[in-house]
Amino acid sequence: MAHPNAPLNQVVQQYLDYLAYNKRYSPHTINAYARDMQRLIETLEDQGHRTWADAQADTIRDAMVTARKTHLAPKSIQRILSSWRSFFTYLLQQNLVKLNPVNGIRAPKSPRKLPNSLDPDQISQVLNATIASDDPMAMRDKAMLELTYSCGLRLAELASLNVFDIDLTDASLIVTGKGNKTRQLPIGRQAIVALKLWLQQRGQLKCYDANALFINHRGQRMGLRGIQMRMANMAAAHGQHIHPHMLRHSFASHLLQSSGDLRAVQELLGHSNISTTQVYTHLDYQHLAKVYDKAHPRAQEKTPLKEKPNHD
């Protein structure tokens, strides 16, 4: 155990050894911690501190101000604060400090990135493509695409679907989402057609999982990675880039553009908090802005040059 007055570097090395030998962290993770600790050492030394007990909340806040001035990304600052907080927790356990100066200090929030989505024509280009009637896997892939876009499913929700979750007569399905919460969703007409064709083919295949709605060529339930790859390949064959989450985002934005009913979209997506769904209002605004710029006669007019003042 290091002495409370031990050099800063010595205590850090002890901590890194602890992470390597006790926590079994990977060399890559250890290197990341080492860089964060070096930044912390420089912060303390710049303020004339010689021991870790000298570090106070103001020390950490000043370091955050400096990080922002150097245009460090919010995610990087969040990671650094997390590293420092873990380090001071370790120092508390070793009785080298009496408080954790990082506690209570919040990192800047990362700007919320708007989800990527496709326009209806791009999706139709893939979904309306002719599928070979003698290729059951292609029929399965189309059914997965249609169902994901029709219901706005998460990838994990799609993969976990069972045959008995689908009610073709009622054109609905029961899906289990995050937090083990279930919700009932309507299924669109085209998705129903695709599902019926796939279920006919599925009944003729070897199946080692009687419940799984979507199975692979070995008769086992489709995995997450397998679904992603099959969707990507099908889309690429028609000049598009599609992944399950993009279909979910497209479902939400297209529905909101048509209905304007944020609450309904929230229920369909299975969001527990409407603030999560509100990101699609930004997508909706972007869509409206593009329509305005393209269609409104005043949006395209060039601003006339101001007349020069007459000083005569």
Score class of each variant (00 low, 15 high):
residue 53 A to L: 05
residue 237 A to P: 08
residue 267 E to Y: 04
residue 231 M to H: 05
residue 132 A to D: 12
residue 251 F to G: 03
residue 27 P to E: 09
residue 255 L to F: 05
residue 133 S to C: 03
residue 258 S to I: 06
residue 218 R to P: 01
residue 253 S to A: 15
residue 258 S to F: 10
residue 112 R to A: 11
residue 156 A to H: 02
residue 126 V to R: 04
residue 48 G to R: 06
residue 159 A to C: 15
residue 157 E to T: 04
residue 96 L to E: 08
residue 268 L to M: 13
residue 220 Q to R: 15
residue 19 L to V: 05
residue 267 E to H: 11
residue 68 R to W: 09
residue 1 M to E: 08
residue 81 L to A: 10
residue 5 N to L: 11
residue 14 Q to R: 13
residue 22 N to M: 12
residue 159 A to Q: 09
residue 197 L to W: 11
residue 112 R to I: 01
residue 241 H to Q: 12
residue 27 P to G: 02
residue 91 L to E: 04
residue 87 F to T: 07
residue 192 I to V: 15
residue 297 P to V: 06
residue 147 L to H: 02
residue 95 N to P: 00
residue 113 K to Y: 00
residue 245 H to D: 01
residue 115 P to N: 03
residue 143 A to D: 09
residue 96 L to S: 03
residue 98 K to E: 15
residue 296 H to T: 07
residue 122 Q to T: 01
residue 143 A to V: 07
residue 299 A to N: 12
residue 38 Q to C: 02
residue 259 S to L: 13
residue 204 Q to L: 15
residue 246 M to N: 04
residue 221 R to E: 03
residue 134 D to T: 09
residue 172 S to E: 15
residue 94 Q to G: 12
residue 76 S to K: 13
residue 26 S to R: 02
residue 187 I to C: 09
residue 238 H to R: 15
residue 80 I to V: 14
residue 208 Y to T: 13
residue 212 A to H: 07
residue 240 Q to W: 02
residue 147 L to S: 00
residue 145 L to D: 04
residue 238 H to N: 14
residue 277 T to Q: 01
residue 39 R to M: 08
residue 150 S to C: 09
residue 200 Q to P: 03
residue 108 P to E: 03
residue 275 S to P: 01
residue 162 N to A: 11
residue 145 L to N: 05
residue 176 T to R: 15
residue 72 L to S: 13
residue 239 G to L: 11
residue 185 L to S: 03
residue 182 T to D: 15
residue 309 P to D: 13
residue 55 A to P: 02
residue 116 N to S: 14
residue 76 S to F: 10
residue 87 F to P: 07
residue 68 R to H: 10
residue 41 I to M: 14
residue 299 A to F: 08
residue 241 H to R: 13
residue 48 G to A: 03
residue 243 H to E: 01
residue 274 I to L: 07
residue 127 L to C: 00
residue 64 M to T: 01
residue 64 M to D: 00
residue 231 M to K: 02
residue 32 A to F: 08
residue 132 A to S: 11
residue 311 H to Y: 11
residue 239 G to N: 14
residue 28 H to C: 03
residue 128 N to Y: 06
residue 96 L to C: 02
residue 63 A to S: 13
residue 190 Q to E: 14
residue 62 D to I: 11
residue 94 Q to M: 14
residue 101 P to D: 05
residue 51 T to W: 00
residue 44 L to D: 04
residue 303 T to M: 14
residue 271 H to F: 09
residue 135 D to I: 04
residue 159 A to I: 12
residue 170 D to S: 12
residue 235 A to P: 07
residue 177 G to Y: 07
residue 118 L to D: 02
residue 126 V to H: 03
residue 76 S to P: 14
residue 288 L to D: 08
residue 276 T to M: 04
residue 205 L to R: 14
residue 122 Q to K: 06
residue 177 G to K: 11
residue 277 T to V: 12
residue 144 M to W: 08
residue 255 L to Y: 10
residue 206 K to M: 11
residue 305 L to T: 15
residue 272 S to N: 09
residue 62 D to K: 15
residue 247 L to Y: 04
residue 232 A to D: 13
residue 113 K to L: 06
residue 133 S to T: 12
residue 205 L to W: 08
residue 11 V to S: 00
residue 169 T to G: 14
residue 59 T to P: 01
residue 308 K to M: 12
residue 133 S to Y: 06
residue 136 P to Q: 06
residue 127 L to I: 03
residue 182 T to Y: 12
residue 117 S to Q: 07
residue 280 Y to C: 02
residue 221 R to T: 04
